[in-house]
Design a binder for these strands. Structure first.
Lengths: 160, 160
DNA sequence: TGACAGTAGTTGGCGATACGAACTACTTTC
DNA sequence: GAAAGTAGTTCGTATCGCCAACTACTGTCA
């Protein structure tokens, strides 16, 4: 259908600004807990349970070598630990220490609280719609990334 | 402190995921243009015209010393240049070079295009709602942080 | 006018990020 | 059971980002 393609400049602009705002909130919260943003993100990802390096690198959108360093430093601070995988002797699973669990949980709750506060004026129905709309965008992205036929390289999108 | 109420876990979760997605898109676009994400962000900020270091550091949420290095490296790559301020001999204004303008514009357009594409399936109604809701969140944040009647123009984001 | 507080930006040192290439060790495939 | 693939690490390099200290200029006020 030939809709008058009006990109609506305010829309993507809003998305970008929102991303920056969320990042800023997250950075502040991390700093309050004496964590780097990357460490805080790592801890939050591990709250649900141990995760292997490869899956972590996908979730964090990081090269595996970058992740090794991140986990090393977090381990040195006593936030996480490596455990061997029972089924694959090459692999390891990263788990939160008691301290990591505490800090990660706090960081998560505090970030959530701040974002909730910022969105406090929104009526519940708008929130639901908003969450649904975002869900749609995420799904769209997932369907594209997942549509990779058999590209050995992740993140290798359409190159110009 | 544990929030006694369970406001709606899906909402902030969605916000955070959206922020990550936008960041990921931005990172990919930057890489396609052989820019670091920070450089790309800098270029996008300068599209509207020259900006001083102090205002830049506010917009990018960076310490001034961090910004000096960023501008140095971008300058070394021929993307930006320093010009002296006519009214204040301490200050300088950062301007895009021809190449910086080209790359910054491309990065901006490409990011916008990708985000538009991801949101392409959303009904217009949801887009408007999303943009409005985000605007409200941003306003809420601005009213908190920006309690000062500073003439601090936003300008903190990509070109309008 | 002339000391003096304030502002704009830089420098230097440090640790944290992030990547790619090369490597080890283990698993799967044929 | 050799080849191919996968999970993580190591290494070298560039970048990022902060803080404290510094230079240079601007504005104020006595």
């Amino acid at each position: 259908m030939v809709t008058t393609k009006e990109p609506l400049p305010g829309f993507t602009e809003a998305l970008v600004r929102l991303a920056h705002l969320v990042q800023q909130v997250f950075d502040e919260v991390a700093k309050e807990h004496d964590l780097t943003p990357q460490q805080a993100q790592l801890l939050c990802l591990l709250i649900d349970g141990p995760v292997g390096m490869t899956e972590l690198s996908r979730a964090l959108n990081l090269e595996k070598s970058s992740l090794t360093g991140l986990v090393d430093r977090a381990g040195k601070r006593g936030l996480v630990a490596r455990t061997r995988d029972a089924h694959d002797r090459r692999a390891c699973r990263i788990v939160l220490t008691r301290e990591g669990e505490r800090l990660g949980g706090q960081a998560h709750d505090r970030t959530t609280a701040r974002l909730e506060a910022l969105a406090g004026e929104l009526p519940q129905e708008h929130r639901d719609l908003l969450a649904a709309a975002i869900g749609g965008i995420l799904a769209e992205h997932a369907s594209r990334a997942g549509a990779q036929p058999r590209g050995s390289r992740v993140g290798a999108e359409v190159k110009p």
